[in-house]
């Protein structure tokens, strides 16, 4: 097999693409390519990963212009030619090379009321929630987020309005709004509204198209729009 011509972002906010030749192999992931460069060609290359099996959400980066989780993305699936362009995720400040600063991303989850607040203590019995109840089914569709930032990097609204909470934070909020054990519903609905909240979403669905876990943040955001509006009409928020 031929070599891959890999262009990798080097630097922080300012920098340039640097080229490396990497042997192409069968079943090679993008993360394999980056790891090969760091271990064999340039040990100063910085990138982030942990689990390598699509669970931790650490390794996302921009691959040929599209945000992807790199540990589960095969080169063959995204690369028709022998050229590969790797860059840090869009919409995130760059720390170094392929490493982004995720602080704002996670702070927005907190700002959107992403922390669960129940009414029971550990001494109370477990809540009984029917698996086929409407709320539980809505939560099921949105609960597997791994916080990789792919949706956030793919969202045009964040490019235009950096204060926008973003798909991941709103998706998380939706899982709690629909969680019948949670007690902060009104606070959360208040937190996810306003010009930087759920109503700012234009339903372009880039987040849904790119989510590696096949979630639909767009659907969650639509749910929030409805719930916030209902709460406003009832005078709850």
């Amino acid at each position: 097999m031929t070599d891959l011509r890999v262009s990798v972002w080097r630097g922080d906010e300012s920098g340039d693409q640097e080229y490396f030749d990497v042997p192409r192999k069968e079943n090679q992931t993008i993360l394999d390519v980056v790891t090969y460069i760091q271990r064999n060609l340039d040990p100063t290359l910085s990138y982030r990963y942990a689990c390598r099996v699509g669970m931790c959400g650490s390794c996302a980066m921009s691959v040929n212009g599209v945000a992807r989780w790199t540990c589960r993305t095969h080169v063959d699936k995204v690369c028709d030619t022998d050229e590969l362009e790797l860059r840090p995720l869009d919409n995130f400040p760059v720390v170094k090379d392929l490493v982004c600063d995720m602080q704002t991303f996670f702070n927005k989850q907190k700002k959107a009321g992403g922390a669960f607040q129940g009414s029971k203590s550990r001494d109370d019995g477990l809540a009984i929630i029917k698996p086929d109840s409407k709320g539980r089914m809505a939560v099921d569709k949105a609960i597997e987020c791994i916080g990789c930032g792919v949706c956030y990097a793919s969202c045009d609204i964040i490019k235009w309005n950096p204060d926008y909470l973003g798909p991941a934070a709103l998706n998380r909020a939706w899982t709690l709004v629909e969680d019948e054990r949670d007690t902060r519903r009104v606070d959360r609905l208040r937190a996810v509204s306003g010009d930087a909240g759920c109503h700012a979403c234009h339903t372009q669905m880039s987040c849904t198209q790119r989510c590696p876990k096949l979630l639909s943040p767009t659907h969650s955001i639509s749910g929030l729009k409805r719930e916030v509006t209902r709460a406003a009409l009832k005078g709850e928020i």
Partner: peptide, 12 residues
């Protein structure tokens, strides 16, 4: 803009 106004604008 307040949460309420933002929701009203969206609904309108």
């Amino acid at each position: 803009m307040s949460p309420q106004h933002s929701a009203y604008l969206w609904l309108a």
